[in-house]
């Protein structure tokens, strides 16, 4: 009811500040943030490719940045973001297509699973890459 505020001297009841989050609300917000993180990550990958295409000199500038510890951390977080967005996106497909998984308990369990999946799968991918 944000539209009626100007003419209203009555206080607005507390909302976000008092709300106790369910897993589904967390997953919804995370979906948004990981979506935004993916824009940033895609920009990073594009920059990498541009550097690669521009020749050895340009790549020599970019390479140490992305191989540094902060660079690797960002890449790892980007992996988590992509995998979470993927898993959670599939959940949306099940909801909007066949309307499966709307039961609150199921939806909460799937939300928690998506977090666990994103982290474990990222660790697995990085383990394979780093150990190879």
């Amino acid at each position: 009811m944000s539209g009626t505020k100007q003419a209203d001297s009555r206080p607005l009841s507390p909302h976000l500040g008092i709300w106790r989050y369910h897993a589904t609300m967390f997953a919804s917000i995370t979906h948004r943030f990981t979506g935004m993180a993916m824009y940033f990550g895609t920009f990073l990958i594009a920059a990498w490719l541009v550097a690669l295409a521009s020749g050895p000199d340009a790549f020599a500038v970019f390479e140490p940045i992305i191989s540094s510890i902060p660079g690797q951390v960002i890449l790892f977080l980007w992996t988590v973001a992509v995998l979470f967005h993927l898993a959670n996106g599939i959940r949306y497909l099940f909801w909007d297509g066949p309307h499966i998984g709307f039961d609150p308990k199921t939806a909460s369990a799937v939300s928690v699973f998506n977090y666990v999946f994103a982290v474990l799968a990222s660790v697995a991918i990085w383990a394979v890459v780093l150990l190879a």
Partner: peptide, 26 residues
Amino acid sequence: CHTIMNCAQVCPKGLNPAKAIAKIKH
């Protein structure tokens, strides 16, 4: 409706507005 699912989580009658909304979209 962005299927945040708070509606279905809190309904004291155990109803599922989120599902009804998905069906309207359908």
